[in-house]
Design a protein around this nucleic acid. Sequence first.
DNA 1: ACCTAGAAACTTATCAGTTAAGTAGAGTGG
DNA 2: CCACTCTACTTAACTGATAAGTTTCTAGGT
Lengths: 267, 267
Amino acid sequence: MKIGMSDQLATLPDTRTPDWAKLLGAADIAPSRLGDAVIERLTEAIIDGRLKPGDPLPSEGQIAATFGISKPIAREALRELAAMGVIQVQQGKVSRVRAIDSGPLARFYRFAVGSTKQGLREAVELRRMLEPHIAAFAAERRTEADIAAMRAILVRMEETLGDVPAWIEADLAFHNQIAAMAHNRLVVLQLKGLEPVVRIMMVRFNAREARTMDDWRVTLGRHVRIAEAIEAGDPAAAEAAMRSHFAAADAAIRDIFGPDPSPGGTG
Amino acid sequence: MKIGMSDQLATLPDTRTPDWAKLLGAADIAPSRLGDAVIERLTEAIIDGRLKPGDPLPSEGQIAATFGISKPIAREALRELAAMGVIQVQQGKVSRVRAIDSGPLARFYRFAVGSTKQGLREAVELRRMLEPHIAAFAAERRTEADIAAMRAILVRMEETLGDVPAWIEADLAFHNQIAAMAHNRLVVLQLKGLEPVVRIMMVRFNAREARTMDDWRVTLGRHVRIAEAIEAGDPAAAEAAMRSHFAAADAAIRDIFGPDPSPGGTG
DNA sequence: ACCTAGAAACTTATCAGTTAAGTAGAGTGG
DNA sequence: CCACTCTACTTAACTGATAAGTTTCTAGGT
């Protein structure tokens, strides 16, 4: 890799090739594959709205022809887009643009969390950061239909008191409903993406010991208080109720995951 | 609706094939492609830690041989995993497991937000929900090194007062640093994933009008107050400071995105 | 005239074999 | 001991073919 005109330059390590990777902000990009052009074009068309969910895409053959590449490469590009959750491809039918859902997000969290207690604890903490604010927005923006749906879920929770698996599903539905009441699609997706990870935690949490019927009623009561504050349209109260809901479960959660990280520790 | 066994049944639309898709919880799964087995196996190996970041994967040929599939299919599976951000594949080298970063998250938000004001508003709102709590955790867990890094960024912000592009980068770095101080990897990834979308907003926000040097100093002052609360280890103060930081920018943001959604409106 | 069964056309899924290009390590010569 | 070349291995891409699922249209029967 000597570029100089004196032989000494050749022996210098790499002072002259500092850190191109960082300088160019491109650490690990492959030197441009042909399929990337397809991905990029379709991506921007979808993002800026020229292609809407449900719209059909050209077939593999057509894409291959228009981009001047072979069918397998065009196919690869489509499958990559499918892996991102952006399009839907099915045998026999042309691929179609797909409305974004929480699938990619859920997969991301699954990988990010892994199967470590550490990861689970962080995911639960992230949810704890979000939900009080979500409750506050829900209290501001809820509609009559929202309130009715929330009440129905509360009834369902009461009916499943003591039935751990059914309770977990009703509980998750309750929190998802509150997210929906904030009328922010991104928030709904966010909470739905966290759901699989949260479900793992809930299974552990609710399986830790035998709980009396009174314990269950106390838990239900905390949810009722959240619902009441939202129904009353009181953001501050809703936020506070959600906060104390999580605080109450805190001791048990620490039981499962261990203490909070020490400042200088593993994070 | 008649459900009898008379010949009229044949004319009924599809009462007898209710909603298999929903019943089976599988709305749109393709009838199992060969490559899916590869994806699933590698996925679980990575999630449960048998494969760690940096570990090499078998080559296309080896995968094809062990799974009894052809090379192009094995290749497709690897590229799909790469599209999920789970592995890194480069010409000439074997694929390797990759530590998860904010890339997939950023891409998700880009698609979810699209190019609508509505989406941008929702993303900004999501960030607003997160950051006060992040600041509170940062105040609890910050280390000396964290504080030093935060101070350095504050100095950088002061130096770039009035220089919009440089200010934006310093501002983003400040908030990212606070996220890092919460010592929760998921939170860091979360904020980094939102960054591209937030940057778009900031460009619009900071370009709206000519601001006096005093305006700039007021903005910087709000950041200083956040930093001071975190440095003092006061979670409540940090959260409050972050809240008022966002509240101050609220009017201008509403200027850009329009008013908050009406409860029954477009959400 | 209408409805239905079946063929035809089009789509994706998968295979095999081949060529090109990039990477890394072994070997060789200075 | 260092630097260079050569080789073996990897991914990138193409070609051409077969299988299997969807849709559409037509031909036939009622």
